[in-house]
Write a protein that binds this DNA or RNA. Structure first.
Lengths: 226, 226
DNA sequence: GTTTTTGAACTGACCAGTCAGTCTAAAAAC
DNA sequence: GTTTTTAGACTGACTGGTCAGTTCAAAAAC
């Protein structure tokens, strides 16, 4: 309801300044660029406010596109969100796997692999803090449309950690009494919460610093004199 | 909007089992019972759906009271939520502090104190899983009305862990190179995520079982043969 | 007689999703 | 080379519905 009468006609469609033809990979990449802008806008807004409290109008505005464009590119608000989740966790999983494999290639121990994965996790969170926030906030909710997506995607990431633990047990490096699933969850939690604390409350600290603190904890070098 | 005719009369106000009046002055306990029902209804709904996606009508319905009653007892939806947060974290903090103090009274080591706190955390999460879920989901959000409440309340809980770590460093039980703040966050994260994983994905396991797994991790008994 | 609860209607803001129409660049027709 | 057509991308006013919060008289509880 506009406060008073309004032209209601676009009249002169102002040219949108620097569009610059986007280029990138020649063909239909304009669309892809728009989707990327929408992801970026959505991830920060939803991390700050939550899914339901974030409006499609806000997302469109921050991305610098019209609301209709959101619906031209995504079937709905929740589909946009789901694709965002899949995309983000895909990056994380790849990064963890890469860390584990590289350690294996260098004949490192499985503890080294865990340590490398801790670092990879920190690097990820350092790079995508908003995504991490949002992910944590949604992970344990029930009754949400994207629950199953989240489940699948979570399992992919945790499975990488579980795999390393299992290898360690198999080759005798870890006690065969450890509970793989629970230990993996605990390790993920350790990194997740420590990193979010870092980003939220002491962002000035360096990644190496944080990594060192977690390494110590991971390797049980807490007890006893330094 | 009931689909058809409905009793609509509360008739017998069922007393909630073991509520035991407790707080406030002896007088207005009827009101207190209503508030308690509203807390319980709100906590599960918000844990499942998030704050914004949960309507006041739903909360009232699940609590079995009229919508007007919600506003008779709380100034607004967010005030209800804020008081819920304060209440819940108060319980957790008390429980952690109790665990730490009891260990101290028994001349236990600081590792024992940490272990006791891990257990206290698990007991809490076992008892109030919905609250925990909701708390984690809101903790790292920014731009929310109750942000400052959350901050204060988080600090109270983490401070208990930090205190034990500090004592341990002071008496030489822990390395003086540990980063107290970060380590405390990591420990909290370890318990939190492992416990949520437990409740979400393997609820049939016993608390002792989960506690044992975390103890092992905490005491660095992961590496090496069992 | 005071406090608390009820129930149901109401308001006004807000918001997801729609749709008719615009823009543009490139292909097709001339 | 110029005009016309096509189709993909985008626009933004508009619709239909939802929901927080209000109101209040009457009933119930204490």
């Amino acid at each position: 309801m506009p406060s008073s009468s309004v032209p209601a006609r676009a009249a002169v469609p102002v040219r949108i300044g620097t569009m610059e033809s986007s280029s990138t990979t020649g063909g239909g990449t304009r669309r892809e660029a728009t989707r990327q802008k929408l992801y970026e806008a959505a991830v920060t807004l939803i991390a700050e406010q939550g899914f339901s409290a974030t409006t499609v109008d806000e997302i469109a505005e921050r991305a610098g596109v019209a609301k209709g464009t959101v619906y031209y590119n995504f079937a709905s608000k929740s589909v946009l969100f789901e694709e965002l989740l899949r995309h983000g966790v895909g990056l994380l999983t790849a990064s963890l796997r890469e860390a584990a494999e590289q350690t294996a290639r260098e004949d490192g121990s499985r503890v080294d692999a865990l340590d490398a994965m801790v670092r990879a996790g920190l690097v990820f969170i350092d790079r995508y803090p908003a995504f991490t926030q949002l992910y944590v906030a949604e992970l344990w909710r029930t009754n949400r449309a994207w629950q199953s997506t989240l489940m699948v995607v979570r399992q992919q990431a945790v499975a990488v950690v579980e795999g390393v633990l299992r290898e360690g047990v198999d080759n005798g490096e870890f006690s065969d009494e450890i509970d793989i699933q629970l230990t993996a969850a605990a390790l993920v939690g350790m990194v997740l919460v420590a990193a979010l604390d870092w980003k939220s409350f002491q962002p000035e600290r360096s990644l190496d610093d944080v990594h060192a603190a977690l390494s110590r904890l991971l390797q049980g070098r807490v007890s006893g004199k330094g």
